[in-house]
Design a protein around this nucleic acid. Structure first.
Lengths: 285, 285
DNA sequence: TCCAAAATAGAACGTTCGTTCTATACCCGC
DNA sequence: GCGGGTATAGAACGAACGTTCTATTTTGGA
């Protein structure tokens, strides 16, 4: 019984360690307190750095790090470092990996499950991407243009159609006047013929671009009706006709591109427009 | 000009490195290919391990790791390792944290930006949820039923309509016979009247449930036509009419529910059905 | 079949690591 | 203000590191 509680109370994961450090921080000697603060502020440094580099960075001696580790029951600095590394290891891995973790328990033992996982992963990736690829100022301008419009024309065909049909649904709920262009090919152009400069259009088209969408956007642009568009390339035919356009590349699984990012974008745009109108309305009262 | 393109084509982040590795994987020598595979399969090991430990684990010589690194333009193994470490450093934290990180740089300084972030976050949450809430065996059964069907009837109204319209688009591409029920209210029932027991239906409805969708599903069920459905509660009127049904709760932002999880589900189902049919077709030849 | 070039394995290199040890500085109760 | 205990800094240690170098093997074209 010379080492009565050797490993029992040694923190085994980062959260536990953090708790213990915070708990005992007050009663810690000066240098150890310094290390404590540094370690919680720069956990990544501790995970990756060497004792020497960390010591320099935290402005202490390497031996202090060892004492610090031993103070909390670890054998040496290295074993404490493992905690910091494990933290990064277990940190929400990539979606692929996360799904791989699911693999064992149930999904994709069955082949369809892996298809399912693939699409979920692709959707995640898409969303990750969209957060950085959409310029918020451009978004603001797009909201401006569409919020001012009398009627919003929604142009989308084929793969983009679900997006505009969601917007149509939401606009209806939000009492925003719109026209959904993209259903029956015949009446589309008649619809667009009625558009005036007080209106605006939102067009969605991804490669391979539906030629009608591009043509319709061009038609409106020629008549000085502002067009906002969502597409997947700077070379998209929509870009040249648009006052504001967004490039949004969806991730794919097995060649089938996700719609999650476009959908999230569409929802945000829809709600932002309605919100802006509501405020303008309030102000007018 | 002794080092004409020193740093130009050296991958600077993990994604770039991954792409280059995959691109050149085929033409890599045996041992280097071995390292390539290992590095992509166990990126964490590379980030934390030492050259010696990694070499042992990957069953190669340490020097091979150095050659591998140099093959891709790095100075030595250590500089390649930095890429793997940076990856963990920047690794997507929780969504909340990630959005908090976005806060500073640009988004949501503008009010619309926060709307945008909100929808992206909601979509992420939805996807996280769906991976665990969908039972893979039920999914498999659903695929079975629908793959066997002659014609697949897609039933969805209002908010669910974008989902079925995507499926309609994809089924068209995949040469799967379908009927899209949900467009003009009048002709819907005529369409469904033609359905036989060789057919099947996929119905989508979320609360507040469109009464027509429930009625149509019941109609088909009474005629012994199998119905698979996607809904958001066990108390959904669709559930009782369905051979297989899925409960899928979407996260929301500002009261607007995401569609990402449903969309991913729909894509997976669509592709899984087509895949199953392709195999059945192959087997028949 | 042979040869030149490329790839590999393994030993050897100097460096840097984490740890330990010891002398010194500091703190606090008396 | 002194003494005993603790905390600290810094030097010294062997071990392990990443890299380089050199035989040896493998490869692919003549």
């Amino acid at each position: 019984m010379s080492t009565p509680e050797t490993t029992t109370d040694v923190p085994q994961d980062f959260e536990a360690l953090k708790a213990v450090i915070l708990e005992r921080k007050a009663q810690l000697p000066k240098r150890l307190k310094q290390v404590a603060a540094y370690s919680l502020d720069n956990p990544d440094e501790i995970a990756f750095g060497t004792a020497a580099s960390i010591a320099t960075s935290a402005d202490v001696q390497p031996s202090t790090l060892v004492r610090f580790a031993q103070h909390f029951g670890f054998e040496g600095f290295s074993s404490l470092q493992q905690i910091f590394r494990a933290r990064l290891r277990e940190r929400t891995p990539g979606y692929e990996e996360r799904l791989k973790a699911l693999r064992g328990d149930d999904h994709s033992r069955l082949e369809s499950g892996s298809i399912f996982n693939g699409f979920v992963a692709a959707a995640h990736r898409s969303l990750d991407n969209v957060a950085t690829s959409v310029d918020p100022e451009a978004f603001e301008r797009a909201v401006d243009i569409l919020a001012k419009a009398d009627t919003i024309y929604l142009i989308a065909k084929r793969r983009s159609y679900p997006i505009s049909s969601y917007m149509a649904y939401a606009f209806g709920k939000l009492k925003v006047k719109y026209q959904h262009v993209g259903t029956a090919a015949g009446i589309d152009d008649d619809m667009l013929a009625m558009a005036t400069r007080q209106d605006a259009a939102f067009a969605v088209s991804f490669s391979p671009y539906a030629s009608e969408s591009a043509a319709q956007a061009r038609l409106l642009a020629n008549r000085k009706i502002p067009v906002v568009s969502l597409t997947d390339s700077a070379f998209s035919p929509l870009a040249e006709s648009s006052k504001v356009w967004f490039e949004l590349v969806e991730a794919d699984h097995a060649g089938f591109r996700s719609l999650s990012a476009s959908m999230a974008f569409a929802m945000a745009l829809t709600v932002a427009i309605a919100e802006k109108r509501r405020r303008a309305g309030d102000a007018a009262i």
